[in-house]
C-alpha cells in the first residue's frame, strides 16, 4: 500500500511506519497499568503465600495456608456455595436472556423497544440500591407479601438472607450484559438462512437448534464467561442479601482481611478465587482466539 501511485487516494487505514510508535505509546499506558496494578499483585500474592518463613524463621516453599484452606470445612463450604451460586446464576441467566434476545432479534415494532429498555435498565442501577430495593420487595413483609396478603394468599418464603437472595440479585444485575452480547451474536444469523430452513420444513425448535444455536455458540460462551467472572468474585449483593454462613468468596476474603486481621489466609483465598476465575477466563480467551482465527 505504501508504494501506491501518488494520485491514488490515501487508504483509510494508514500503515505508514512513522506512526507506529504513537500506537505503541497509546497501548503502553493500559499495558503498563495492567502489569503494575493487576499482574504484579498476582505474582506478589502467589509468591507471598508460597515462599514464606516457616516456624524456624527460614524462608522457604510453604503450602501450609493452602493445605489449611482445603482441609478447613468452613472454607470449603464457602467455596462450594460460591461455585453453586455461580452455576445456578449462569443457568438462570441463559434461561432468561436467550428468550429475551431471540425475541428482540426477530420482532419489530414498538414493544420490543420497550422490552429492550427494560432489559438494559439494570445496568444503570447501582447494586446497593438494587439490594435495598430487593429487601423492600422480596424481603419479609415486603411489597410482594403485602400484595399477596391483600388478596388473601399466604406470604412467600422470602429469599432474603438465604443463598437464593444473591442468586436473584446477581441474575438481575447481569441481564443487560448477557442480553447485549447474545444480541450481537444473533446479529450474525442471516434471515435468509432461517427462511431457507423454514422452506424445507424445519419447525421453530429445529431452526433454533440447527441454524441459530451453532452460530451464536461463541456469543453464549463469551456471555457466560463474562457473567461467571463477575459473579464468582461478586461482593455487594452476597454481602447484603446472602446468609451469614456459608458466605461467598468475596465477602469471605474481605472479612478475613479486615475483620479477622489475617492477611495470609485472605491472600490465599484470593489466589484460589483467582485460579477459578482464570479457568473461566481461558474459555473466553479461547473462544475469542478461535473467532479471530476464522
Amino acid at each position: 500500500m505504501t508504494d501506491a501511485a501518488p494520485a491514488a487516494p490515501r487508504p483509510l487505514i494508514d500503515s505508514n511506519d512513522s506512526r507506529r510508535p504513537h500506537g505503541l505509546l497509546l497501548v503502553a499506558i493500559p499495558v503498563f497499568l495492567v502489569a503494575w496494578l493487576v499482574i504484579w499483585p498476582i505474582i506478589n500474592a502467589i509468591g507471598r503465600t508460597l515462599w514464606r518463613p516457616d516456624a524456624t524463621g527460614a524462608l522457604g516453599f510453604n503450602l501450609n495456608s493452602y493445605v489449611f484452606f482445603f482441609s478447613d470445612q468452613y472454607s470449603i463450604n464457602n467455596l462450594t456455595i460460591t461455585l453453586w451460586t455461580t452455576l445456578v446464576c449462569a443457568i438462570v441467566l441463559l434461561a432468561i436472556c436467550l428468550p429475551i434476545s431471540l425475541y428482540l432479534r426477530f420482532s419489530h415494532g414498538k414493544l420490543p423497544a420497550y422490552v429492550q429498555a427494560m432489559a438494559i435498565f439494570p445496568m444503570f442501577v447501582p447494586s446497593i440500591i438494587l439490594a435495598y430495593a430487593f429487601i423492600r420487595v422480596l424481603g419479609p413483609n415486603g411489597m410482594v407479601d403485602i400484595l399477596l396478603n391483600s388478596v388473601g394468599l399466604p406470604k412467600i418464603r422470602t429469599p432474603y438472607l438465604t443463598p437464593w437472595g444473591p442468586v436473584i440479585g446477581l441474575v438481575w444485575d447481569n441481564i443487560p450484559l448477557t442480553v447485549l452480547i447474545l444480541l450481537s451474536g444473533l446479529g450474525n444469523v442471516a434471515n435468509q438462512a432461517i427462511e431457507a430452513a423454514r422452506d424445507v420444513g424445519a419447525n421453530r425448535f429445529q431452526v433454533f437448534w440447527h441454524i441459530i444455536l451453532p452460530r451464536i455458540s461463541n456469543s453464549v460462551l463469551v456471555a457466560i464467561s463474562f457473567a461467571v467472572l463477575g459473579i464468582f468474585s461478586s461482593f455487594t449483593l452476597p454481602y447484603l442479601l446472602g446468609p451469614a454462613s456459608p458466605e461467598m468468596m468475596g465477602p469471605f476474603m474481605n472479612r478475613t482481611f479486615r475483620e479477622v486481621n489475617d492477611p495470609l489466609n485472605a491472600i490465599t483465598q484470593a489466589v484460589i478465587t483467582f485460579c477459578f476465575c482464570i479457568a473461566f477466563g481461558l474459555f473466553y480467551v479461547r473462544s475469542v482466539a478461535r473467532n479471530q482465527g476464522k
Binding site: 429487601i135 424481603g139 419479609p140 413483609n141 415486603g142 422470602t158 438472607l161 438465604t162 454481602y239 447484603l240 446472602g242 446468609p243 451469614a244
Partner: peptide
C-alpha cells in the same frame, strides 16, 4: 428465620420497621 443474621445495623432496623 431460624437463625438468620442481618448484615448491618441498618438492616436490623429495617427488619424492625417492616414489622418482621
Amino acid at each position: 428465620d431460624n437463625g438468620a443474621y442481618s448484615s448491618g445495623n441498618t438492616q436490623s432496623i429495617q427488619l424492625l420497621s417492616q414489622g418482621v
